[in-house]
């Protein structure tokens, strides 16, 4: 009885979905709206409308801003979920201070110390120049997150945690969604829609995009580092 009910319910949900899928343009067909007018609009007017030279950045943060807002929230949720799961598995969550079983070599330590500033600079460059060249908040943030992880492994967690202090850490991890909220509200005040970007003074849209890039970058880096540290915590 229960089984039949489940099957009937599934069929009732699946039917409209399948019908809707059947009405969509064929996969790869040239009649898809994405090919007929959206892509052309992006390519022809993207540079002037979106406030970014790099059309990919313009599409991700401006035209498809809602998508990216959702994505950023998902990333933050992932971090929160890891924290929740690992915090549940043990009563205390004391960080391990004992160090790795193998003492780290001074060579590795020296090379990492030598390279760390360059990696940080590269991450910053990728975030800032995401507007004109390949890169952006996600990419730069990941590079910086990887730097924090390498520092944790090589130099030790105490020193690495100085890059992300305990108190504002939650806020830093939430920087992505928060920056979208802030910029979206500013857009709403300026244009009337959430995440609306004003066209006319190009500097305003550009600085809003830059704020988003930095928010995504800081949030992404802190989320990656946060997940790694959580995994290192003693359960």
């Amino acid at each position: 009885m229960k089984r039949a009910l489940v099957i009937a319910l599934l069929a009732a949900v699946a039917m409209p979905l399948l019908l809707a899928a059947a009405r969509m343009p064929r996969f790869g067909s040239v009649e898809q709206p994405a090919y007929t007018h959206v892509a052309r609009r992006y390519l022809e007017r993207g540079a002037e409308e979106a406030g970014a030279e790099n059309i990919v950045t313009g599409v991700i943060l401006n035209y498809r801003g809602f998508d990216t807002n959702g994505e950023v929230t998902v990333i933050f949720t992932a971090c929160a979920a890891v924290a929740a799961v690992l915090a549940c598995s043990g009563e205390g969550r004391r960080p391990v201070r004992a160090g790795t079983p193998v003492a780290l070599s001074p060579v590795v330590r020296y090379v990492v110390r030598l390279l760390a500033p360059f990696i940080a600079l590269f991450a910053f460059y990728v975030v800032v120049f995401g507007e004109v060249s390949p890169g952006g908040g996600f990419q730069g943030g990941t590079v910086f997150g990887a730097l924090i992880i390498v520092t944790t492994v090589v130099v030790g967690r105490d020193e690495a945690e100085r890059l992300s202090p305990e108190r504002p850490r939650l806020w830093l991890q939430a920087a992505g969604p928060l920056s979208f909220l802030a910029v979206g509200t500013v857009g709403a005040l300026l244009t009337g829609w959430y995440l609306g970007f004003p066209h006319v003074p190009r500097a305003i849209a550009a600085s809003m995009l830059m704020a988003l890039e930095f928010g995504i970058g800081v949030g992404g880096a802190m989320v990656l580092a946060g997940i790694f540290w959580r995994l290192g915590d003693e359960a």
Binding site: V126, P134, G135, F138, Q139, T142, V143, G145, A146, I149, V153, L224, I227, F228, L231
Partner: peptide, 14 residues
């Protein structure tokens, strides 16, 4: 870039 940093780097560490 993202694939190199996330896929080959961070994911493996995690």
């Amino acid at each position: 870039m993202t694939e190199a940093a996330v896929g080959a780097g961070v994911t493996t560490v995690l």
